[in-house]
Computed example of a mutant assay.
Amino acid sequence: MSDLGFTWRTHKSGELQIFHRGKLATTLRGAKASDFLDLAASGDTGAAQQEAARLTGNYKRGNERLAKGHPRNA
């Protein structure tokens, strides 16, 4: 489960854009961008994908299975 659909692009200005399935999800600047790039450069693709999910808020929160069985969602 190392590929969650996130890609990223850096710019000369130091900005880091994170894309989810080809659409812009967030833009990072400063220390957050630097920390993320350090993690991505470490070679652990799975960890970089998970961190991108955390930074963009695009991750499962654990309640999806419970909500699926709720009567209003049936």
Rank of each mutant, 00 (worst) to 15 (best):
S42R: 05
T7H: 02
K12R: 12
F36K: 05
R29T: 12
T27G: 04
G69V: 11
A47E: 12
G22Y: 01
L4V: 04
S34T: 15
G57P: 10
D3W: 03
S34W: 07
A25Q: 07
A52K: 01
G46Y: 00
G62H: 03
L24Q: 13
L4F: 13
R9D: 00
K32E: 15
F19K: 06
R54N: 14
I18R: 05
K23V: 14
A47K: 13
W8A: 03
K32M: 15
N73S: 05
A25M: 06
R61H: 14
R72D: 14
G5C: 04
T7I: 13
Y59A: 10
H70S: 11
F36D: 01
T56W: 06
L16D: 04
K60E: 13
K12L: 10
T45W: 02
L39F: 01
H70Q: 08
H70I: 08
D44F: 00
G14P: 00
A40G: 08
I18G: 06
L55R: 01
S42M: 01
G43E: 01
D3M: 03
R72L: 13
S13C: 04
G62L: 01
E15R: 09
A25I: 02
R54I: 03
A41G: 09
R65G: 02
A48Y: 00
L37A: 09
L39A: 08
M1I: 08
R54P: 11
E64R: 09
G5W: 02
A31V: 14
N58L: 07
D38A: 13
Q50F: 05
T27A: 06
L24M: 02
S2M: 14
